[in-house]
């Protein structure tokens, strides 16, 4: 079951929606266009009582993604989880916040664990139950990279979701290969001549996933629920290996106000620093356009991890970050 495409423009003029598809719900929208999160019947895959920090973007992103997958599959989801915040804050003995079948094994092996689950379903001829693997950016782009690449290569029937908050937040905010250049982490402190995380050539996993030519790759953000849910639904319509990377702000690691989590996700995208796009079988098929473009400074200034970037002495770094945004905008046609 997938959502119909939105009505054509002519009709839209008459069927105008006050908040369109930007808010979580909209009583003026036809039911089929409303989000899963707007319904009282959503599965709450992660339920109340979990121990995520105030304003945790990952707790939100995970519930969004899993609830959508649950709806699409008629509640036939098994999830595997890498070690990390999501695992720790949901399942400290004796309480679990998960309402779905869920397993945590290790930090670097979630893709393989998920592949193993999928292999079981295949062996038993179960075609309705689907498997989701989830990990943070460290567990995905660093320690879990090999297993993930193997999963892609075999085209195992797993949707891998990476909740990207740009660092090892669970262990106390260390740098990962997904940490943005210039960002302060506890292993890339703002000291010395080139403060913050070094501007490396980068390890942008969605592009690496695309290089594997797996059926579906997408990036999403917790600020745009309709977009995120659509991508999860799309991903579930494919068989084989799929990869979705969700940008999830981390108040602790980013040095931001908990209340600003959604806003940060939003302006990260609107500044061009977090491109949202989709790719099928290795080819870019769609990008989510920027609605109201904002300068990167607006994004940076809400985060203490970038405080040093905005000092006059580090204007070069600021320029580098601007250039990254511009490159994204061009490469993914975000405007």
């Amino acid at each position: 079951m997938t959502k119909k495409e939105q009505p054509a423009t002519d009709e839209q003029m008459i069927k105008f929606y006050q908040t369109g598809t930007f808010t979580v719900g909209n009583r003026l929208l036809d039911e089929e266009f409303r989000t899963v999160q707007a319904t009282s019947e959503r599965s709450n895959s992660i339920d109340s009582g979990h121990r995520a920090c105030q304003g945790c973007g990952q707790a939100l992103g995970a519930r969004y993604a899993l609830d959508t997958a649950m709806r699409v599959t008629d509640n036939k989801i098994i999830a595997a989880n890498a070690t990390g915040c999501l695992e720790v804050f949901t399942t400290p003995y004796p309480e679990t916040a998960w309402s779905i079948p869920w397993i945590h094994s290790l930090f670097g092996n979630v893709a393989s664990v998920a592949s193993g689950i999928a292999a079981t379903l295949k062996a038993k001829g179960d075609t309705t139950t689907r498997v989701i693997a989830q990990g943070g950016d460290g567990g995905t782009t660093d320690i879990g990279f090999a297993c993930l690449s193997g999963m892609f290569d075999r085209n195992d029937d797993v949707l891998y979701i990476c909740y990207d908050n740009g660092g090892y937040m669970n262990t106390g905010v260390q740098r990962s290969s997904a940490t943005p250049g210039g960002a302060r982490t506890s292993t890339s402190m703002p000291v010395g001549e080139h403060p913050g995380s070094s501007f490396t050539t980068g390890k942008f996993l969605p592009a690496i996933a695309m290089a594997h030519e797996i059926p579906y790759v997408a990036t999403a953000s917790v600020h745009d629920l309709h977009d995120l849910e659509r991508k999860i639904e799309k991903a579930m319509s494919f068989r084989g290996a799929r990869y979705i990377q969700i940008n999830v702000p981390c108040p602790l690691g980013w040095g931001s106000e908990p209340a600003k989590t959604i806003k940060l996700a939003r302006i990260g995208v609107e500044s061009g620093l977090v491109p949202l796009f989709e790719a099928e079988h290795g080819d870019l098929t769609n990008s989510t356009k920027i609605r109201y473009q904002v300068p990167v400074e607006e994004y940076l200034q809400l985060q203490r991890r970038f405080a040093h970037i905005l000092k006059p002495a580090n204007v070069d770094q600021l320029e580098t970050i601007r250039a990254i945004a511009e490159k994204n905008i061009k490469r993914y046609q975000l405007l």
């Binding site: 979580v24 719900g25 989000t35 999160q37 707007a38 707790a59 989590t261």
Partner: peptide
Amino acid sequence: ECDNCYGICPDN
């Protein structure tokens, strides 16, 4: 009743 609060609460 846009459901935003309901949808974005990380703690349900």
